[in-house]
Write a protein that binds this DNA or RNA. Structure first.
Length: 413
RNA sequence: GGGGAGGUACCUAAGUGGCCAAAAGGAGCGGACUGUAGAUCCGUUGGCUGAACGCCUUCGAAGGUUCAAAUCCUUCCCUCCCCA
């Protein structure tokens, strides 16, 4: 009776864990490992590597983080692996220049801010933070030769990115081959049962399996999550492109950014970024297709849901209200960023538009701001300011809108 | 080691002495229209100067020729391809 329920529970867990997963190698292996867990009580070691060079976590990162959390909830051991050593090489992407070497302190600081944000999702009690320099930095050349000897050049060239760059006549650094190998070695060192990553990590993740086998370990299960497109709906969400929604974004911004994603992405966002049950999502999708659910309304549910996760439902409701004020009624949002002006900024209660805009930080180029004004993108209390040479009379509590997405409330000090 | 091709702005890419702050497309930004969506149309996209068709910096780097250089010369750096 009890024995039977082991497998049943494992099967149920598997179903939960497979939500939103793009590919898993292999399902059977995971089933086996989960069975084993229920038989022995030995939690699975679930690992994901993080690059400490970019300290801002955005929704794209949360896709795998949320998956990690699912593992935690089911009783498993998550290893949050900071790639402080691998970060020095940088995952091959073709055009990136050599990364500047981070000092140990910088890495620690980054890792701290990074994990703090990650703990908005992960349970800190059930997370081990590791740094891969711990084992990588002590390897000798001999060790490295031994490890690399397990792989062939032909195998390395299977990686699409390498392959592509080579056929496009782009350079491939020899050291770049080491990145996947180091990542694989991480799995060996941790004895990982499962490694999570985006689909773009396929090659690296599989290398881990290969190397583990070579080292006499049971190969890890590889779980690949789909890449999340950013607010532009095309490119993978990333800070450098600027199409990202950060988990630290204030509620109003976060709400707005979610509202600006293309309709085609709504379902995917629900699946990967919320806990809304699958049948509900599918029902909404049906209603949407049959014109019973307006895409905007559907998106509002999404935005509220996601903002709630990171800021709580009160602030999510506030964000919704603000959103409607700002865009439906064209009024000022409650939650706009405060822009404080001091007496030094004002001459006879007046300030030059460009100076004012400069203070918002929207752009640091006066030429660009000038253009923005000339093109009619600047409003003060809903009055367009079209002349870049104008001096504006400032009253306390005025509402400044810069371009489509930036709102400020002016406070005098 | 030998031979060939190449390095232009966020990206792709034109330009081989002045008309070049540099074509075109993509991407971005702003406007119109909307649902802060998509599609479409218009505008705009090095910086500075309270803006003038004025100044400064930019075509891999440094020098040089010239009244004038992305463009010609020299040296250097980097990448790719073919051969050994």
């Amino acid at each position: 009776m009890i024995r039977l329920s082991f497998e049943k529970r494992a099967t149920e867990d598997l179903k939960i864990l497979c939500r939103g997963v793009e590919d898993i190698i292999s399902r059977e292996d995971l089933q086996k490992k989960l069975n084993h867990y229920y038989q022995t009580g030995q939690p699975l070691i679930v690992k994901e590597g993080f690059d400490p060079s970019a300290p801002d976590i955005h929704l794209g990162h949360t896709v795998t983080l949320r998956k990690l959390r699912q593992f935690q909830v089911l009783g498993h051991q998550v290893v949050f692996l900071v790639g402080d050593f691998t970060g020095r090489i940088g995952d091959p992407t073709g055009k990136k220049e050599t990364r500047k070497q981070l000092t140990e302190e910088e890495v620690l600081v980054n890792a701290k801010t990074y994990s703090d944000q990650a703990f908005k999702i992960l349970d800190p009690e059930k997370t081990i933070i590791e740094f891969n320099s711990k084992w990588l930095k002590n390897l000798s050349f001999v060790d490295i030769i031994e490890i690399t000897a397990h792989f062939t050049v032909a195998r390395m060239l299977e990686r699409e990115d390498f392959h592509q760059r080579i056929s496009n006549g782009k350079p491939v650094g020899l050291h770049e081959f080491l990145y996947p190998i180091m990542q694989a070695y991480d799995s060996v060192s941790l004895g990982a049962d499962v490694e999570l990553g985006g689909t773009d990590q396929r090659f690296n993740l599989l290398m881990g399996r290969d190397l583990q086998r070579e080292f006499g370990q049971e190969p890890q299960v590889v779980m690949m999550m789909p890449l999340l497109e950013g607010t532009d709906g095309v490119e993978k969400m990333s800070k450098s492109i600027g199409n990202y929604i950060a988990v630290n974004d204030p509620p109003f911004d976060m709400f707005g950014k979610i509202m600006s994603i293309p309709d085609s992405l709504i379902k995917k966002y629900f699946i990967l970024l919320t806990d809304i049950p699958m049948n509900t999502i599918l029902q909404w999708e049906k209603d949407f297709t049959n014109d019973l659910l307006h895409p905007r309304d559907w998106k509002i549910i999404l935005a509220k849901e996601i903002v709630s996760i990171y800021h709580g439902s009160d602030r999510a409701n506030q964000a919704l209200e603000d959103f409607e004020r700002a865009f439906a009624k064209k009024e000022s949002p409650e939650d706009a960023q405060i822009l404080t002006l001091t007496d030094d900024d004002l001459k006879d209660e007046k300030i030059w538009v460009i100076s004012l805009l400069l203070k918002t930080g929207v752009s640091h180029s006066k030429s660009e701001l000038r253009r923005l004004v000339e093109q009619g993108g600047v409003y003060l209390d809903n009055m367009r300011i079209a002349d870049p040479n104008s001096d504006i009379q400032i009253k306390d509590d005025q509402f400044l809108r810069v371009g489509k997405k930036h709102f400020f409330r002016i406070k005098k000090k």
